[in-house]
Design a protein around this nucleic acid. Sequence first.
RNA 1: GGGCGCUUAGCUCAGUUGGCUAGAGCAUCUCGUUUACACCGAGAGGGUCGGGGGUUCGAGUCCCUCAGCGCCCA
Length: 1051
Amino acid sequence: MTTESKTATAPDPADIPSRFDFETAEKEIYADWMSGGWFHAKPDPDRKPYTIVIPPPNVTGALHLGHALNNTLQDIMIRLKRMQGFNALWMPGTDHAGIATQARVEKRIKDQEGKTRHDLGRTELVRRIFQWKEQYEARILGQLKQMGCSCDWDRTRFTLDDVCARAVRHTFFDLFKKSLIYRGKRLVNWDTYLGTTVSDDEVENKTVQGNFWHFMYPVIDPKPGEPPHVIVATTRPETMLGDTAVAVHPDPAAALSKVESELKAKLKKAAASEIEGIEQQIEALQTRRTEMLASLEQLRDMANDGRMLMLPLMDRPISLVTDVWAKPELGSGCVKITPAHDPNDYEVGKRCSLPMINIMNADGTLNAETGSYQSLTMKQARKKVVGDLEALGLLKEIEDREIEMPVSDRSGTPIEPYLTDQWFVKMDTLAQSAMDVVESEEVKINPQRYTKGYLSWLGEKRDWPISRQLWWGHQIPVWSVPCPTQADCDQMRDKITGLSAFSDEIAAIEVEASSETDPEKRKQLELPDFNLHVCVQDESADLEKALEELGLVREEDVLDTWFSSALWPHSTLGWPDKTAELEYFYPTSALITSRDIITLWVARMVIMGLNNLGQIPFDSVFIHPKILDGNGETMSKSKGNGIDPLDVIDNFGADALRFGMADLTTETQDVRLPVKYECPNEDCKHQIVQTVKNRTLARVQCPKCKQEFSTQWAEKDEDRALPRGPVTSERFEVARNFTNKLWNASRFAMLNLEGYSAAPINEADLTVEDRWILSRLTTVSNNVTTALENYRYAQATRELYDFAWDNFCSFYVEILKDRFANPDLRPHAQRMLVFALDQLLRLLHPVMPFVTEAIWQQLNRFAPTRGLDSAQPASECLIGASWPQLDAKWYSADIETQFARFQSSLGSLREIRSRQNLPPKKEVKFSIRCDQEYAQSLTPMTSYFKSMASAELTGMGPDVLPPETNATVASDGIEMFVDLEGLIDKAAEIKRLEKEEKKAEGNIMGKEKKLSNEKFVSSAPPEIVQRERDSLAQLKEQLATVKASLKKLRG
RNA sequence: GGGCGCUUAGCUCAGUUGGCUAGAGCAUCUCGUUUACACCGAGAGGGUCGGGGGUUCGAGUCCCUCAGCGCCCA
């Protein structure tokens, strides 16, 4: 159709199909927008900028419905602002998503070729991941385009491209120079298979069957009366090789009492089914107190007295310490401490200044610290340790027990807590700056409640670990060399600063003192006293080469993905260069994202924006809901309940997807979206509810027609060969139907535009319904504008839906049918219809860009010139049209009341017709008893009763008398009599009236009660009281009418 | 353990500072193919707003409490 619009064929509205062919139209329209350059924004000092940077989707895989929601909301804002005259830039791009992407590609290579990344080497692996990235980036950007996203594609960035890389190095250098970046030890989640740390949210806890081993550690030189052994229990026996202490509670009696009183409190509130269990626990606790407390206190005293234990197998003396981590209510009450291999023990180690011994290599085997256990795997070591201890008679007991095991969600292997060197960003001052701008509302977070989480997370000011042991990412631009002594260090520094390629502008030096503070131990472990680090600001081949010639080695690790995404709002605009784009479009206007990355991403963008530019990155943040499946679970790739937006687009069109998404975006977070597969068999189309079972399947069999179809998970050729069963949801049906309704209302308009002549609208010709639609249009456009500007998307869609369907289609267009039949009224009616449709299309465009654009261009063929005050040529594309701004004078409460009277009367007529089962064409007569004012206000619309309810008004005014046989409706202070001479179904009418009677009586009772309450009458605002009085009086009149009618009908 | 949400019709959800008889879509039932639309039109039925308590003349809305569900952080 858009292609047609370019050719000069004479338009024939009869050619317009009765359904919107979105499949064809969307492609053509998008191509039109692209070639029209509508998405491209250039700095222009004469216009105000409005900027959004896309939350760059991960190149891990294709987009799902969560992304569809996120991007729809952004596009709505961009299109709205573009129409409002802003110079709107939507900056697109993708994120390299470090570990997620590398893990996926590694897994694929392993599955397909049986090779590991070490077989391929760094360069080759990175090349392979780039291939993957190219493929998915294309898919992702394609999905965005199909959704109608009006991104400035000429500016597309990737977090790992050269422009972003430069921003990363400049930022890193700056922070390094400010001593805000340092290297230090940290216990991390180590994936021994991938050979890297994984973040906490990439760890899954699994409950598995395991054992609890009880060991005896000998006491060194026990005093008389003291036990020769201390018993400890563990689920990880092999870690005992790295034990550096055993802990006992500092006040076991108090700890036991506390637990006991907590249990008792719980018992009081417990459900019947729990009582027995809790009572047993209390009993066990009391037994424990009598049997064990004395010995625990003795151990505590021994610890305070400095008693040592001998760690078996290693023959290493270790301390007995007191710490609250030891739970007197559990096991032996003593706990072994392995600070380098357990997060809790690590904390104990820090509190008690214990040595931390790392016993593991990066590949998960044991290292030299473990002596004869070296190079065993953890599993092998476990067997040997247990066997050896048993041989020594130190294994007391093995207990079966369920244990929580952390598992890497990337590789599926157990996570090892591991103490390694990591790079950190010091957060104290940086975090504070990001807190300040949110507290002052310079950056405003919507909905506001999310500020709390943001502030409390930043308030902890925990340093940010930024190094990742990966190959896919920005390699840390630091070259290091160990310096055994201070002198070596000074010498090296001189050598470096003496390099011809070196300057303070592009390189910075930091010296790191060894974390091993004991000089003896350093000697023993051959650790240098110092490490010297040089950070290089930008790619500088000369300097990098010179450093390497001096023996410095580049850090192998790459940066956390979030380090580069934190720069996104300015790196995409060309920072560190002072580009015209940066100058003009930064700070950006809005950031629209999901709540799970408020801390990971939003907070860090604020930090980096402030650090790098001294300016906030955006004024306003909108956190949108999450989409849950029918079981209330969040959609995710691993669960398989994600939905490909293209499924929805194929089935319902992009506009329906977008409208559906916007309609879900209410203030209340999280929306359930129950989904079904639709059987692709044309004769079947059966809908199959998506369940936990079938949601991950590549092929599903339709229970009705028994034919198989493929799903979005189909990867094998034989699966893909099957017809695709798309995912559907009722939500999109509603939106699709709405699209079609709009299409057909417009079609009606086109069909009635023959002989259209453009001219300003003559105010004298305006009828009540014209004024009404203008008044409604004024209200709706104001409300929609306000709603969208405040991110209340669902409010906007509802307003638009109700207006378009209930006001425009059901009333305005219906009434116009009558007027089109009259040649005198026709030209004005045409102009009004064209104008109203024009405005409606503009209002709907941000939400439903395709169908509105299609209609717009269609309308341009039949009525290219239009307007209210003056008829103007319409813009060629709707995307470039201006946002409606109706003169406030068009709003009229009186007109809306007047029209509401018509609607209410019409409603009553229709109800009676329906109750009386009158055939649609059977004409009835009716009259209305009301005051003069009411009669006058209804008069202009009397003829429409005929066209819209086959009813003829025979009389109206205070003197109207009811016909002999009639149905009476009392409402709104008037009485309507529908003449049912020879037609009446008495029983039906009596039934209706009885219902009315009951309802009125109930309401009257309630109101009388309220009004007889002295306090109400005296305390409530007078207008409220008066309203109640008026309403009561009217109800009483109504009731009287109903009773009279009933009496008459019953004879 | 701490924090933040949610619970309104069979289903999915609206309900802005407390104030007329708590709304919508889908589903259900009745009627209808009048040349924009059956992805349609007309109408109907369906809710003691999770339980309990409080503040108030008045509570779906504010406060407390309990229960269930979800998310985030530890």
